[in-house]
């Protein structure tokens, strides 16, 4: 796409019209979050009431790759896309742990990432949550015992919840996060269902 001030204005406007026509045709593609599809969620500890109240409806996530094979990252990267659309739950990713409420940690913690992970945790203001993603984060998975591996995430920072899987599906991750906050949507609620005119156009 070219910026709007390009010289070939007529063509540009035509492209624009086509683009919006396509948007209209496509409609909303977000799917409802199906809990049944996911596996069990491993709640490590109870979340305080206040935290849930405060973070429940607007959650900022800082993702930390503590040494992952990037499998989990690929899944996490799908969260904000139109299909999973984590934003509908008030969840968005941020660039700084200062802005974050939740650390999404993946991978076995390598030696190099041990200190940074702790620092990230320290840099995050309270109240904060830590969700570890994937099997490696829980028990180092296939990397267990590797010379560069320091240990599971929980050995470095306190983990509030864990989403198993290698890698877990995006829906699982989303469900895990929401579970951690104890605000998994009831089936059929507004944020979850595809109601309204946009859905019918599909």
């Amino acid at each position: 796409m070219r910026p709007f001030y390009c010289h070939n204005a007529p063509r540009s406007s035509l492209v624009m019209a086509k683009l919006f026509a396509k948007i209209w045709r496509t409609g909303i593609v977000t799917e409802p979050l199906s809990i049944e599809a996911g596996r069990t969620l491993d709640l490590a500890r109870r979340i305080e009431d206040r935290t849930r109240r405060l973070l429940g409806r607007a959650l900022a996530i800082r993702q930390v790759d503590a040494g992952s094979c990037n499998g989990c990252e690929i899944e996490i990267a799908a969260l904000p896309n139109p299909i999973y659309d984590c934003e509908r739950f008030g969840i968005h990713f941020v660039a700084s742990p200062r802005h974050a409420d939740l650390l999404l940690v993946t991978g076995p913690v390598t030696r190099n990432m041990e200190v940074p992970l702790r620092k990230t945790w320290e840099a995050t203001p309270d109240p904060k949550l830590v969700v570890s993603i994937g099997d490696c984060a829980h028990d180092c998975g296939v990397f267990r015992g590797g010379y560069g591996v320091s240990g599971p995430v929980a050995s470095v920072i306190p983990v509030d919840a864990h989403v198993p899987g290698c890698p877990p599906e995006p829906a699982d991750i989303l469900a895990g996060i929401l579970k951690a906050l104890d605000r998994l949507p009831e089936p059929g609620s507004r944020a979850d269902s595809r109601t309204g005119s946009t859905a019918s156009r599909r």
Binding site: S96, R98, P116, L117, E122, A123, P125, D126
Partner: peptide
């Protein structure tokens, strides 16, 4: 009013 002093955020560098 909670306030905590920490390090400057630098992507976790040492």
């Amino acid at each position: 009013r909670r306030r905590r002093v920490g390090e400057t955020w630098g992507c976790g560098r040492i």
